[in-house]
Amino acid sequence: MTLNTELIWTVVSFVLTLCIFSYLFGDNPLFRFATGLLIGVSAGYFAVIIIYQVLLPRLVVPLLQGSFPALIPLFLSGLLLTKLSPRLAKLGNLPMAYLVGVGAAIAIGGSLLGTLFTQVEGAINIFAPVASAGMSQKWILILEGGFLLLGTIAALVYFNFGGKEDKGNSVQRSPMVRFFSAIGQLFIAITLGAVFAGVMTSTITALIERSNFLLIAIKTFFGIG
């Protein structure tokens, strides 16, 4: 029985994989069927997860245990549900404001302490290993650190969209900014190239994994191996 269930699910996965692979020959009903199924199933599964793993442990269980503070999220949740009604949607602004206020503070704190300070510090500390390095390595480390620092600064300069309007109603950056932004452009091109290569690598791995699954499934269907 279990084996049969596993086999059925394998067939389902196999068929759905082929449905998506059929897109290689263009858009078709099989592909659309699979994507529609994905949307519906994902939404249903997500709803079940929210109910079982968010609302039950955080809202229902504390209320059943007599936790008075749980009434606050219950009240806010009730107000948030009014967003479903166009007429009452304004009542949902309060919990939305609460969420947005928390989210904004999280974004500020995270960006400031988690990325901005640490990355600036990291850019400065590039030269830290130089002090402990030997003479032969020192110049290499200095060059390497200087190269990375230049790239970081130049990339930041590239994103600075400040300029002056000339007579021809065209806005140009100052020559110094243009020079550094050109360098920054090259560094960004290299980084984006690495990202593109990574995307290709990831998708190729996914292709191999799906191809491997298809082969295993076929072997299972035909009892090979």
């Binding site: 969209f161 400040g162 300029g163 002056k164 309007e165 109603n169 065209s170 806005v171 140009q172 950056r173």
Partner: peptide, 10 residues
């Protein structure tokens, strides 16, 4: 507007 023009130039 100046920034917009600059972005367009870039």
């Amino acid at each position: 507007q100046v920034r917009s023009k600059l972005l367009k130039n870039i």
